[in-house]
Design a protein around this nucleic acid. Sequence first.
DNA 1: CTTAGCACTCCGTTTCTTTGAGTGCTAAGC
DNA 2: GCTTAGCACTCAAAGAAACGGAGTGCTAAG
Lengths: 354, 354
Amino acid sequence: MELTERKKKVLRSVVDLYIRTAEPVGSKAITELPDMKYSSATIRNEMAELTTMGYLEQPHTSAGRIPSAAGYRLYVDELMSDYRLSIDETRSISTAIEEKMQRVDKMVEKVAKLVSQATDLPAISVASRHGSATVKRFDLILAGQGSVILVVMLSSDEVVNKLIKLPVSVTETDTKLLGAVLNAAMTGLTADEFTAELLEKVMAAAGVAAALVPVIVDFTTDTLRRSGSTNMAVAGHSRLLGLPEYRDVDKAQKVLSSIDEDALSNLPAVMMNEHGTKVLVGPENVAQELKDTSVVMTKFDIGDGMQGMIGVVGPTRMDYAKVTARLSYFAESLSKLFTKPETPQLPEAPHEDQ
Amino acid sequence: MELTERKKKVLRSVVDLYIRTAEPVGSKAITELPDMKYSSATIRNEMAELTTMGYLEQPHTSAGRIPSAAGYRLYVDELMSDYRLSIDETRSISTAIEEKMQRVDKMVEKVAKLVSQATDLPAISVASRHGSATVKRFDLILAGQGSVILVVMLSSDEVVNKLIKLPVSVTETDTKLLGAVLNAAMTGLTADEFTAELLEKVMAAAGVAAALVPVIVDFTTDTLRRSGSTNMAVAGHSRLLGLPEYRDVDKAQKVLSSIDEDALSNLPAVMMNEHGTKVLVGPENVAQELKDTSVVMTKFDIGDGMQGMIGVVGPTRMDYAKVTARLSYFAESLSKLFTKPETPQLPEAPHEDQ
DNA sequence: CTTAGCACTCCGTTTCTTTGAGTGCTAAGC
DNA sequence: GCTTAGCACTCAAAGAAACGGAGTGCTAAG
């Protein structure tokens, strides 16, 4: 069967209405829409056919229709009208982002909060590095009363440090020597290449400060591993409960606990190969617990070999147009912010609404 | 009216049962308890009096009794039997904690998660510094191709760093000079003492590297401020929904959103002056949204001038004995871990159960 | 002081009825 | 041939009535 223009129009109307009201949509409600020049009987016929085609569903005989997963899919891919951000919206997103975001992990938390606020849904924010890091250089600073500050610069230009309290006292000559040894032997290597032999070799060459070596190697290994890992935050759990579909506590709990736990930790992997904004409608989700839930995600660029991702979780009946628009704008703004950190240049508002 | 031993025993039984079942407790249920040698009629009389005394409440005439806030208070203060941690419990807490906790902010997140797991309730974890931090020393490391690494050591021995990409190229002599100037002029000061005049003075003395000064001062100010601030994490939101009292979505939402937002950010302040474990029963909470909710919190010592706090949020009917025991053990373990970081010495299990 | 007995209250549950929105189908109209 | 008015039918949701039973307070006897 063919999808005529009118069928598409009806389907769009049903989805739009259902998104707004969360109630099954009847034929009469459709006819009452502006520029629907047909009677309820005609609409009924169309809806019946859309149902047999699998785009709509009927909770029970004498109820209106609700969109099926396929219906949402079609809606998201072809039917939905672009949501146009108002200047107010772009402005509030922009100013929210403009505040300094110092460290990546804090940033992740903050972004999750902001996205959740902007969409009124639980939000996820992820930052992760691709490829494995190596050490670019070591520095040791003698910091008085038997303390040494270890400063490690990674291949990504990320710099980390650790204060080491010494069991023995060392002189500047010692630390200079140790620094030279470390830089000679251990730069350019990944964490996996820090073998036991290497450790021994370095210790042998390190002289007086050899006691420091294990601590340094441990810390560095850990840092390299951590740096390759993923930073992730969730915010706005409670917003889910405001939605009628989650008045059922059991449903809500399933979703909430799955976003708290590991169910989402594979999502980044799923997403990382994608581009742009991705919408996963209900059953398209891998996780069983999210069958009645949709996920919308967008990637953005952090620079320094890192990649960010933001997304929201909500009912299949969510305002895809609005959510996608806001997420995209967020992602765009964040990309610009991070790739040109000195003069944060936010993207223009797509245009100004009324 | 006097609180006889028997009344206390009855009250304790009512609270215990109600904690277990979440159902109003009738006189018959009490008589069925071991070592209750009285008939239901006697218990009824006692319960009636406990009700007029304000320790129990009756949802309606033909229902059993539930504890009032005053009842819980008395229970917590005097009546409840010590909950004795089993070896299994202490062991699982201990091993959970023993994993390395690198940075304070990560630690806070992790601890929140652990506490929530251990209590099966939403948990809060806070770390905050008292007193304002100052800078102990500055170091500058020239890191090739026009980059300088700034390393700042705070009064708390916390060390932070920042990579600064240079607009102009500088030599080691320049950075040495700048380092000396910074150390001379800006150590021992709090963020508030970084005035505009000071900035000018330092820039004048800094020579070639003067362009770096504003960046450095900004970063340092920010770090000092941040270091004085509070780190906080919440975990296990969804556990609340497992409890019968929060089948009512509205209630759950109120509590969840209030722990997400600011309602709790004053709790640390409330607690910081207290010692040991503090139980806030329902209406004793300041926040209106938490009137039907109890909060249990404990402080612990992080060292380095920092203080930690862990706590849980749950229904007034929560297993105070168990929760308090686990929280205390957590706090103790964490204190030991942080104050003797090199050889994490966990406290002994209070004793071994059966 | 304790307890058996009893009338009474009132919530939660079940069952039945009612209501009404929405449907599918048929037949008439354009 | 497409559209639409009309109508019988369905079925969830809301309301009303009846029931059962857990628990109470009180009284009077042990």
